[in-house]
């Protein structure tokens, strides 16, 4: 019964030029999506350090979305390529530290894809809802009483 009420927390790292603006367009178009997602704006997906993601899970996120410009559309030419190359390795690292890497989602949303942004976010939320709460780090935090 509790599972049904579960509202996941999703952290989204988005680039300033494409996905953030695409999310703005979703707003301007008055499209709707659930409130579970909160966005952290970075200049480019290339700026995202894998540690940010682990940190987000540690801080109670149940899922993480990373979204930037389409290949070849990057405002900084190659930033998203560097990002993409790194994620392939990073998935393994996530599994290694005990985070189910299927909770991490990648997508390309351009500034003109408000609808796609809504679709992506909604899909991620639904997927994470199915997976349930991410408890592993909560437990660790409790056991070792780590506090900021």
């Amino acid at each position: 019964m509790e599972e049904e009420k579960f509202e996941p927390k999703i952290a989204a790292f988005v680039c300033n030029w494409c996905t953030y603006t695409g999310a703005d367009l979703a707003g301007t178009s008055r499209l709707k999506y659930p409130t579970n997602v909160k966005m952290i704006r970075v200049p480019c997906t290339g700026r995202i350090d894998p540690v940010f993601i682990i940190k987000a899970f540690e801080k109670g996120a149940d899922g993480v979305l990373i979204s930037g410009c389409h290949p070849n559309d990057c405002h900084y030419n190659t930033g998203n390529f560097h990002a993409r190359r790194r994620w392939i390795l990073f998935r393994q690292l996530l599994n290694f530290v005990g985070i189910d890497s299927t909770r991490l989602h990648f997508s390309w949303v351009s500034a003109s894809e408000g609808k796609k942004f809504v679709d992506v976010v909604t899909e991620v939320i639904n997927k994470v809802k199915e997976q349930g709460k991410f408890k592993k780090y909560e437990k660790i935090n409790k056991e070792f009483a780590i506090h900021e």
Partner: peptide
């Protein structure tokens, strides 16, 4: 665009305005 910051193994490059601490 800060990819240098993300990839630096010794964390010695920072992107001003979007540094690690801020994020």
């Amino acid at each position: 665009f800060g990819t240098c910051n993300a990839v630096c193994p010794s964390k010695s490059v920072e992107l001003i305005g979007f540094n690690d601490e801020q994020i």
